Amino acid sequence: MADPSRLRPDDRADFEAVLHHALGTADIRDALGADPAGRAAAHLRAHALDHTDDIAAAADEPYRSYLAVRRAARHEVRGPLGTGTLLPALVVLTPLVAGTSAAALLLTGALLHLADTLGPLPGSLVAAGWTLALVAAVTGLVTLAALLHTALRRRGATPATDQVEHARLVWRQELLDRGMLPHLRRHLVPHPGTAITPCSPPDTLTPCPARAREDRTPCSD
């Protein structure tokens, strides 16, 4: 069984949508805007996609809740004819086959009676026809009841759908706040054309004054 904390393939589109939204956040967009060629943005996006599971793990609890609600909703809206076995096909086909067979037997028996055929065959065919007609009627009612039950369940599935959508939105928000934005901000790379000078700590981009650059001496207080 797959680890519940790992991102499911069908949730990959949501992950990429959150990534796209995060890349458009003001501070990240401004930082990436220093590279007009877009290489920094492409690198950051590729890095996030390469670390999908690590980023998704930050929102593990809401993701598990989302999966549980989605699984419950799918089970709830699955009707009695959707069991994944041969039963649905049998329930639907039985009244059709029985009704067709009953009509054929009754017609054959009636023709034999009209032809004054001797022996028990005409009566046996008619009796079998009526038996099959009864089977067709009973199974038809069962099928109709099952279909009606399924329709009513699906009609009442809107609250379940709303719960799934709510859980999905909660997960996406947590993924953005706890996972995606912190990851992108940690891995923002300064524009390669910007020099870091001895005047500033290595993590800042404040240039030396012009006179200090000309004297080629470190800035001092």
Rank of each mutant, 00 (worst) to 15 (best):
P4F: 12
D10T: 07
D11T: 02
D14Y: 09
D14I: 04
D14N: 11
F15I: 04
V18G: 00
H20W: 04
H21K: 13
A22N: 03
A22L: 02
T25M: 08
R29N: 10
D30Y: 06
D35Q: 02
G38V: 12
A40E: 15
H43D: 15
L44T: 01
R45T: 00
R45S: 09
A48P: 02
T52P: 01
A56R: 00
A57I: 05
A59E: 10
D60H: 09
S65E: 14
Y66V: 00
L67S: 04
A68G: 04
V69I: 14
R70H: 11
R74G: 12
R74F: 05
E76P: 02
R78G: 07
G82F: 04
T83D: 15
G84N: 09
G84V: 07
T85M: 09
L87M: 10
A98L: 02
G99D: 00
A102S: 15
L107I: 14
A110M: 07
L112T: 06
G119Y: 03
P120D: 07
P120H: 09
A127I: 02
A128F: 09
A128C: 08
G129T: 03
G129M: 01
L134E: 04
V135I: 12
A136E: 00
T139V: 05
V142E: 01
V142L: 13
L148W: 11
L152Q: 12
R155P: 07
G156H: 11
E165D: 07
L169V: 08
R172Q: 15
Q173F: 12
E174S: 12
L175D: 00
L181T: 15
R185S: 05
H187R: 14
P190W: 02
P190G: 04
A195F: 03
P198R: 07
S200G: 09
D203W: 08
E214W: 10
D215W: 06
R216L: 12
T217P: 05
T217M: 10
C219S: 08
S220K: 13
